[in-house]
């Protein structure tokens, strides 16, 4: 095959260009490819780790979440506990372990074991992720704190519940937050503050059927 002079020239230019900058170009491609593959590998490891936790959580859901009015058998409670323990031990940094703790708290309350319920919720808060990289969802933390406050209040430690409530802001959970606060004030026999909290809950659009009754119960004489 013969090239014309013009083509020869182009070829020459190309060769020269390749000699001058080909290596750095190839380096660029290699750096990019390695970087990308490493990232993809890391991602897929994360995903399979998370998928394993997800399967456990799914099994937990099928065991515990039943139709309305169906009661849990002892056997299913036991296997649910087993699943929760496995989630917490083997997938402690997954969000599914935190969800598992919520279920654990519920099972404990069903069992009237408020200490265990408190431990479960506290475990959730202690193991939540903070910081810039994928911090635990705010709603989950608020939910856990509100439930923790309810458990503590039900144990009769109203002041500690109030302190806990004072330590965070409720976001869109204001109605629930204010009602629990009212309950705590009521337990401490501080009717004026209880009333104010209940009114705040009412204003925040609470759907609680007992809220109005609670409010009426401590209504001040007009």
């Amino acid at each position: 095959m013969a090239f014309s002079t013009e083509e020869e020239e182009t070829l020459e230019t190309l060769k020269r260009w390749w000699n001058e900058s080909g290596k750095s170009l190839a380096l660029g491609v290699v750096v990019f490819a390695v970087g990308y593959m490493g990232w993809a590998q890391w991602q897929s490891m994360q995903t399979s780790e998370s998928a394993a936790a997800s399967d456990l959580y799914e099994a937990l859901g099928t065991t515990v979440v039943l139709g309305p009015g169906v009661e849990l058998t002892e056997a299913s409670v036991a296997s649910a506990r087993q699943l929760i323990a496995e989630l917490k031990e083997e997938h402690g940094d997954s969000v599914y372990a935190l969800y598992g703790a919520l279920f654990g708290a519920r099972l404990a309350v069903d069992d009237r074991d408020l200490d265990t319920a408190e431990q479960e919720l506290q475990w959730l808060l202690d193991n939540a992720r903070t910081g810039y990289f994928s911090p635990t969802d705010e709603s989950l933390l608020i939910t856990a704190r509100l439930r923790l406050a309810r458990v503590i209040l039900s144990k009769g430690e109203a002041q500690r519940a109030l302190d806990l409530l004072a330590s965070f802001s409720p976001g869109a959970f204001e109605a629930e937050y204010a009602e629990i606060q009212g309950d705590a004030f009521y337990a401490l026999e501080r009717p004026v503050e209880a009333r104010a909290s209940y009114e705040q809950a009412l204003q925040a659009g609470s759907t609680s059927e007992t809220l109005q009754m609670k409010l009426d119960d401590i209504a001040l004489d007009s």
Partner: peptide
């Protein structure tokens, strides 16, 4: 499920 199915009612409540 994490939010709805984990709700509870304590004896005191």
């Amino acid at each position: 499920n994490a939010y709805a199915a984990t709700s509870f009612a304590t004896e005191a409540e």
